[in-house]
Write a protein that binds this DNA or RNA. Structure first.
Length: 1069
RNA sequence: GGGCCAAUAGCUCAAUCAGGUUGAGCGCUCGGCUGAUAACCGGGAGGCUGCCGGUUCAAAUCCGGCUUGGCCCA
């Protein structure tokens, strides 16, 4: 057994042991008949190594899975990996030095997909190694991968279910488009950064009246698509005649914005000539400011008019340039108004032919030209620049553009009420995460755009009509075909739900068992039904859709149905708070759309891992603490213990090196507690099967620590059920450090040191054994390595092959005694105060004290001390313990008073000095003014009237007595320690000084624990030598000495004992 | 710009829901102890409970505003 706790070597040994005995497999088999518990792993994304947040997350999952297994559950523990998506595509593009989609086309779609797959698989291996390195036990041989055909089929199935319910549609939507990646990106993939942009004020000339509307924008490139101007219905707008030099013009601006706009336009002066509310302005027509350059720009009966909109604010000009072909709000309002959508911009951010003069230009590059044109045609009131936050692609950092494109949607807005009802079926920790954040998000969520115009993803399982055979052609013929346009009606589209259906319906011959479902394969497949040939739409799914089906994808549904029927929905999931908008949401949306239910019953939402100083971690900025670094520095168990000691409910966690070290120290204490009795047990051949706490002759302190153990078990279970494993490990560590190490082990050391057969010693062994055995079981979910090592050492062949097969310890009522726990709590409080008093009196614990008097103010406290007087005497090394009850006075106490001259002076004048001296000399038995008056009166031979405010009482203890106050239970009191020396006490004190030095010498000699010795000592002071000699029996017993004197070639050392020179020699017999 | 969460000793946190002298562990410091020894025990210092205002006899706690940090959304 190693002397020192070394997490790394423990780790190494335990991993080897696990491998040797198939510990993981055995543990799972052991529970295979248990009640099912369906845990679902939120799949980490395979584009990088595990960071501290992932590490925390997986460690949390591990602790709960291990705990649930110990509770008897058969836990599903299939890990998952999220392996599709744009982030991986961009990494591969970087690797291959690609710039845009064209490079991918040239490289070949299929080859590119292959590269993405290899990249994702490579990352997976790295992640998995990381997870295993800190002891996470999941089914690593059989992870679910979002790129496997079985899993992708799960996504198809979910999507087709949503389609069955009529929740799938194609539609135009304003989306955030990355012009480099040439795909729509989700709003939560947009990162905002501060940038410089144009800031222009533009005049839109009114048609039926004098003047122009003034709008403000930072995106000149959207002006070609301007379709209407929005106002606030309640706001007041003013028509002002503005003068600049000799010219003047009429401008319409919101009242509160007039001054500001006119100063921007550098006008000299103005007067208000007209006024209208937004409502009154509705229907005013205006000219498109870029009609010449963009002849196709919106026009028509309803276009180029003023409308109200709720997105208008009295800011800038109070009128808002609106282009339904771009902005999301503009689009929505335009749709309400039935306006045509004009979007002259392609997916790559380049104007198409409809943009007239600007065709072929990248929109951001066209800003300058457009502003020049506006200036030239007199429609530009002001141009400048502004700094604001603008959306960028989270992967390639390109500025996003809002454009309207055809996308595929799951129309979750149609089932919003159902989703809101479904979230009630889930229990969240913490509860506010559900009732505030999550509900808000669900309420505001728009339809889910699930299509991406990319390659590395699950292809949409939608086939649309593309061509039809002429009716006259024979069905087998290869005759001419007519292109067919899809009607837009989902009844005319084909949505495939699984591989079998795919194989059945496609024209080509494929094997449903082996077919790959990626673009490279399925793009080639066509379906011909009723003379119409259908082709797949080229899009792939938004990667969020992949993980949204994890609750059945984990179970390979629909390929296999049994587990799904048995287990679904998930009993528990746990992820960080960013998943409120991610996985928690996507699963709810998909679950409700496909199955009508929320796919999880319970959510544990934890926080983020932050830097020790509270900053967020960021790999790109190099601000991280790497898990591997933490493992190297502190060890896997201490790191886990630290992470698990953090509140897992919603709060962020600051990583702390000190915190981790502190956990390491606690584990070291456990190690020492465990190591302490081993040599003794070995000497005595203790057999834990032979002597258990049930039949040993327990002493009260044994009963106490066993009772504490039961209480700890009950508390820990409660904490685990509340999903507060941090409180559970804190409870356990507190027990190990405070109760077992600092109290119990100290209390039983003498018993363990006894030689030969001894019932008391055996009881201590049995107790320690039970405590350790159950403690390591309680610790096993948290720090699986050290728990295993100690467990194996303790139980040997008698136990399981792994501690993780143990049942979770349940409190045993027959071992629990709350009254006893209270009594010991009192003892510990009194002991602490007694130690303090000893220190004041400078009497070390080795020297016995004559007596300890405890003056209590509470019956229960006093009773506890009386009941535990023996233990207390032992702990305080006191010859006797006396209790003074709440109604009693300790007769040996006296009180004196300190005079306050600022009060005495005015009251007594010339006599004040004399009275002060009498007061200060007085000593009374009780702290009352009356007693003082009487004492002072007899001293001075005259009556004195004292007031309470004139004096302050001081408690005087008898000579040689020190005191300290204490508190315990609902009361407290004062501990008095009488350190008066007697010859007998001195004799024992000196003897113990000798004992301690001989023990140290035994240790220097590295003697076996039970080695016998001869001891010789010479002390310079005859009196001290005589006192020591009186206690030779005690010394002999304590140091295992057979005889005194006659040491010839022994180990000899000079000492100083309490200022007296001494020489001690020791030799093994 | 909006929502949610947080802010208490140098650090990590508890006490906040249900108002009543603020506490714990670690760290620091001083002293002690020594067959668990890189362990252990005791003492001490250390707090306008982020800021401002309100309710109340009384606010870390309830209410409002602000500041800072985190997450989410725009």
């Amino acid at each position: 057994m190693a002397d020192q706790y070394d997490p790394d070597s423990v780790h190494e040994r335990v991993v080897a042991h696990w491998d040797a005995v198939d510990a993981y497999e055995q543990t799972k088999d052991h529970r295979s008949d248990g009640e099912d518990f369906f845990f679902v792993d939120g799949p980490p994304y395979t584009s990088g190594a595990a960071h501290m947040g992932t590490t925390w997350n997986k460690t949390l999952k591990d602790v709960y899975i291990r705990y649930l297994r110990m509770q008897g559950y058969d836990v599903t523990d299939r890990p998952g990996y999220d392996m599709h998506g744009l982030p991986i595509e961009t990494k591969v593009e970087e690797k291959l030095d690609f710039e845009n989609k064209k490079d991918i086309q040239e490289f070949g779609e299929e080859a590119f997909i292959e590269e993405c797959k290899d990249f994702a698989e490579e990352q997976l291996v790295g992640l998995q190694e990381d997870f295993e390195s800190f002891g996470v036990w999941m089914d690593w041989d059989n992870p679910y991968k979002t790129i496997s055909p079985e899993y992708m089929e799960g996504a198809w199935w979910g999507f087709s279910q949503a389609h069955e319910r009529g929740l799938v549609e194609q539609g135009k939507r304003s989306i955030s488009q990355c012009p480099r990646c040439e795909t729509a990106i989700a709003n939560n993939e947009v990162e905002y950064e501060d940038v410089s942009d144009p800031s222009i004020y533009v005049k839109f000339d009114l048609q039926d009246r004098e003047g122009s509307l003034v709008i403000w924008t930072t995106t000149p490139w959207t002006i070609p698509a301007n379709t209407f101007v929005a106002v606030d219905e309640e706001l007041t707008y003013q028509g002002v005649r503005a003068h600049k030099g000799d010219d003047s013009e009429v401008l319409w601006i919101a009242e509160s914005c007039v001054e500001d706009v006119l100063s921007k336009g550098r006008y000299d002066d103005y007067e208000v000539i007209d006024q209208a509310t937004g409502e009154e302005m509705v229907g005013w027509k205006y000219e498109h400011p870029l009609r010449e350059a963009v002849p196709d720009a919106p026009e028509g009966e309803d276009a180029l008019q003023v409308y109200t909109a709720d997105y208008v604010e009295a800011d800038r000009t109070g009128l808002v340039h609106s282009a339904p072909g771009h902005g999301e709000e503009d689009f929505a309002r335009g749709e309400d108004l039935g306006l045509d959508v004009f979007c002259p911009v392609g997916g790559n951010g380049v104007y198409d032919e409809s943009a007239g003069a600007y065709a072929g230009q990248f929109v951001k590059d066209a800003d300058e030209t457009i502003m020049d044109d506006l200036e030239a045609n007199g429609n530009l009131l002001s141009r400048g620049t502004t700094h604001h936050s603008y959306g960028h692609c989270w992967r390639c950092d390109t500025g996003i553009i809002q454009i309207v494109t055809d996308q595929w949607f799951i129309t979750v807005t149609d089932i919003k009420d159902e989703m809101l009802a479904n979230i009630e079926d889930s229990e969240w920790h913490p509860d506010w995460a559900r009732d505030n954040r999550f509900r808000d998000f669900v309420e505001e969520a728009p339809d889910w755009n699930v299509s991406r115009q990319r390659y590395w993803g699950i292809p949409l399982p939608i086939w649309l009509p593309s061509e039809a055979r002429s009716a006259s052609e024979p069905s087998s013929g290869q005759g001419p075909r007519d292109p067919v346009e899809w009607s837009g009606d989902m009844d005319d589209a084909i949505v495939i739900g699984d591989r079998e259906e795919l194989a059945d319906r496609v024209d080509q011959d494929i094997d449903s068992e082996t077919v790959d479902l990626h673009k490279g394969t399925v793009d080639e497949l066509t379906i011909t039904e009723d003379g119409v040939t259908y082709e797949r739409v080229p899009d792939v799914f938004d990667v969020w859709l992949d993980s949204s089906v994890a609750s059945w994808g984990t179970l390979n549904y629909p390929d296999q149905t049994e587990d799904f029927e048995e287990l679904w929905p998930a009993d528990l999931i746990m992820e960080a708070h960013d998943q409120t908008r991610g996985w928690f949401w996507s699963q709810l949306g998909m679950g409700t759309a496909a199955v009508g239910e929320i796919p999880y019953d319970e959510v544990l939402m934890h926080g983020y891992a932050l830097m020790p100083d509270g900053r967020g971690m960021s790999k790109s900025k190099g601000i991280t603490v790497e898990p591997q670094e933490a493992i190297d520095e502190g060890g896997a168990d201490p790191m886990r213990a630290f992470l698990l000691a953090q509140n897992p409910q919603g709060e962020d966690m600051r990583f702390s090196w000190e915190g981790m070290d502190s956990m390491g120290r606690n584990l070291n204490i456990l190690w020492n507690v465990f190591r302490f009795p081993l040599p003794y047990m070995r000497i005595d051949g203790f057999d834990p099967a032979e002597i258990t706490v049930e039949d040993a002759d327990l002493e009260e302190i044994d009963e106490w620590v066993l009772s504490r153990l039961q209480t700890v078990e009950a508390e820990m279970t409660e904490h685990f059920e509340d999903r507060r494993q941090d409180r559970a490990i804190e409870t356990l560590m507190d027990f190990v450090v405070e109760d077992v190490s600092r109290f119990y082990v100290q209390a039983v050391r003498d018993r363990v040191w006894q030689e030969g057969d001894d019932g008391s010693k055996e009881a201590a062994y049995a107790t320690l054994y039970r405590v350790l055995e159950e403690t390591v079981a309680l610790l096993a979910p948290f720090t699986p390595f050290i728990a295993e090592e100690i467990y194996q050492y303790l139980t040997g062949d008698a136990g399981y092959d792994t501690v993780h097969m143990c049942d979770w310890p349940e409190p045993d009522g027959t071992l629990r005694d709350v009254g006893l726990e209270d009594e010991i709590e009192v003892v510990r409080a009194v002991e602490e105060a007694g130690s303090n008093a000893r220190q004041q009196a400078e009497r070390k614990l080795r020297w016995p004290v004559k007596r300890v008097v405890v003056d209590v103010d509470d019956q229960e406290v006093g009773g506890s001390i009386e009941l535990q007087a023996g233990l207390l005497a032992d702990r305080l090394n006191a010859r006797s313990i006396e209790v003074v009850g709440p109604e009693e006075e300790w007769g040996e106490l006296t009180y004196s008073a300190e005079a306050d001259m600022s009060k005495l002076g005015p009251a007594f004048g010339d006599d004040a000095g004399t009275i002060m001296n009498a007061l200060n000399d007085a000593s009374v038995a009780e702290p009352t003014v009356a007693a003082l008056e009487s004492a002072v009166g007899s001293e001075l031979d005259q009556g004195v009237d004292l007031e309470a405010e004139m004096v302050e009482f001081v408690r005087n203890t008898p000579e040689g007595v020190a005191s300290t106050e204490f508190e315990a239970l609902d009361g407290g009191g004062v501990v008095y320690v009488d350190t008066t020396l007697t010859e007998d006490i001195e004799s024992e004190g000196y003897a113990r000084e000798v004992i301690r030095r001989v023990q140290e010498m035994r240790k220097d000699l590295d003697l076996e624990m039970d080695a016998r010795i001869r001891v010789e000592y010479e002390i310079a002071d005859d009196r001290v030598a005589e006192l020591v000699k009186e206690r030779e029996d005690l010394i002999a017993e304590e140091v295992r000495a057979d005889a005194f004197g006659g040491v010839k070639d022994g180990y000899r050392k000079e000492w100083e004992i309490e200022g007296v020179d001494a020489e001690i020699a020791v030799a093994e017999v």
